[in-house]
Design a protein around this nucleic acid. Sequence first.
DNA 1: TTATTCGTTCAATCGCAATTGAACGATCCT
DNA 2: AGGATCGTTCAATTGCGATTGAACGAATAA
Lengths: 163, 163
Amino acid sequence: MEITLSKTRLEFIETVGRMCQQLGLPRSIGQIYGLLYLSPASLSLDDIAEQLSISKGSASTGTRQLASWQAIKQVWVPGDRRDYFEAVGNLRDLLESIYRNYFKPKLEKGGRKLDSLLATLEEERQQGAVSPEDYAFFKERLDNIARLEDRISRVLPIAEKLL
Amino acid sequence: MEITLSKTRLEFIETVGRMCQQLGLPRSIGQIYGLLYLSPASLSLDDIAEQLSISKGSASTGTRQLASWQAIKQVWVPGDRRDYFEAVGNLRDLLESIYRNYFKPKLEKGGRKLDSLLATLEEERQQGAVSPEDYAFFKERLDNIARLEDRISRVLPIAEKLL
DNA sequence: TTATTCGTTCAATCGCAATTGAACGATCCT
DNA sequence: AGGATCGTTCAATTGCGATTGAACGAATAA
């Protein structure tokens, strides 16, 4: 594999890389996905590292991350013991997977944290560590978050289906 | 203003700070919002800096950022020339504002970038810089993104209303 | 067996963005 | 007027996480 990338692919890789960066994800992950998404053929780890001029280590961790999100998948090439990768082209599925594996767990974690905070607040009230007025204020604000979280976790799956 | 924060507030501040960090935003911004969100009284810049043990500079830039997102607002306290801040308690409105001021512009920017990429691709085709097969592949994949972007920008406002 | 060729790991490095803090101009007070 | 108290700015610093690259074990080939 010894190709030079067209301008379109180079720009695309750069764009997806920047997008990831802005989302707080490693740029290399975006670059890898961008490269694979516009790759007619599946690529090996070394292909990826070479085309993007990144280390094999980065390519390895990046591909594993992307695979865990089901954004890319490994494909088996008979007669070659190397791992080959290709992007999951169906972005609709990808989005669904990101929601399920990324957003949903975070929402649930947030919900649990909120419960623990409400418990702490209750504790403090019983100990008299907060005034009744403060307690009422804190309670209402925390409840507001809980309600929003509830609605979000109800609406997101619907929005998902509407896509 | 010389209060000590209750355990509930401290934990909440930490949590929101971490959330922001994970989203690629400055932790201090989350801390400021968390502090204000669970603050019965509005706070001055110095209050914020002191309670969070951050510099006045951070507090200044952080509050301005948050205000630009309409996550917090300045309130005028008669007889005091300092700026006071309080959190916008209505999270539903906050979400709407974030969508309008943050997501929507990014979606639109992405759309424009995609158009420019398609133009580049067309150019390369005419110059024979890409094979017909590659062209077809690139075209289809880029079109897929455009279609998804379209659906997203149509569904998001609906989901917004459903909240 | 030994020699390659894989992918992974992890300590060290690097780069970027958050944070600091001093200097500044503006505004208010006396 | 001068002095005090605001908020902002920006160059310097810091801290964090992405990235590197060498070392490693495993699997294959000779």
